[in-house]
């Protein structure tokens, strides 16, 4: 029985590395990724003597000497430069507190809003419960700072927001935005995908908005299929 298990995991490893082109395979925490002094453990990996060991569950990637583990599941981990969607949970004296569906709360400083805002009229710009698209500007020990300066950022008016698994976000966006551009074109909707898995859709009418949402959920569910963009086009033909 043990042999069977080993064999099937070996096969799996080969299949994945082949389909991806570069070397990638699934590892579990504590599993040795490679052995040898030449390799450098990157994110999600650590060195123990000769071996480089996975620190978390995910796809191990060998890029030159660098070894890293790409997460496949789990909660959103904020990174600098990420565009995220959030909900204003409090208006404080010098900014807004935003829930971004992650372990630490985020803050938008009043100076980081796109135009000058009088401190006495802050809630006229953004009040509690408003949705906002923002970019992570810095991550410090105690909290995340956001900025609203940038294209497509700011308070989200109308439309609706829903949530997908954050690990599916790269797939929804597609290579250089190919997937999301296709969905936008086919439905005529305005879509903002936050790296935290929150997605905002606003279209001409409710029908196209629902169609866009269904399309996004279709991509998020169909996982690891080659030529997903083509599949998406076929899906639009049918629906």
């Amino acid at each position: 029985m043990k042999n069977e298990i080993n064999e099937s995991s070996e096969e799996l490893r080969e299949e994945i590395s082949e389909s991806e082109g570069n070397k990638r395979w699934i590892v579990v925490p504590g599993e040795t990724i490679v052995t040898g002094e030449d390799f450098l453990p990157g994110e999600g990996a650590r060195r123990e003597g000769e071996a480089v060991i996975a620190d978390r569950f995910g796809l191990a990637e060998v890029a030159g000497r660098m070894i890293k583990v790409i997460p496949l599941s789990g909660a959103y981990i904020p990174r600098r430069g990420n565009v995220i969607l959030g909900r204003v949970v409090d208006v404080l004296y010098n900014g807004w507190l935003v829930d971004i569906d992650s372990a630490s709360s985020a803050f938008v400083l009043i100076d980081e809003s796109p135009r000058f805002i009088n401190r006495n009229e802050m809630d006229q710009f953004m009040a509690i419960g408003d949705m906002v698209a923002a970019k992570i500007w810095s991550i410090k020990g105690r909290g995340i700072d956001l900025t609203l300066k940038g294209r497509g950022l700011g308070k989200l008016e109308e439309g609706f927001v829903f949530r997908i698994n954050p690990s599916r976000v790269p797939r929804v966006i597609g290579r250089e935005g190919s997937m999301i551009t296709l969905i936008k074109e086919k439905t005529g909707c305005n879509i903002t995908v936050g790296q935290n898995g929150w997605i905002w859709i606003k279209g001409q009418d409710i029908e196209s908005e629902i169609k866009a949402r269904k399309a996004v959920e279709f991509v998020a569910d169909k996982v690891h299929v080659d030529g997903l963009t083509e599949k998406m086009e076929a899906w639009f033909q049918e629906n």
């Binding site: 579990v28 925490p29 504590g30 620190d55 978390r56 599941s73 909660a75």
Partner: peptide
């Protein structure tokens, strides 16, 4: 815990 992507030494 592994599935949730928590950094861990082993199972």
């Amino acid at each position: 815990l592994a599935h949730a992507g928590i950094p861990m030494k082993n199972l």
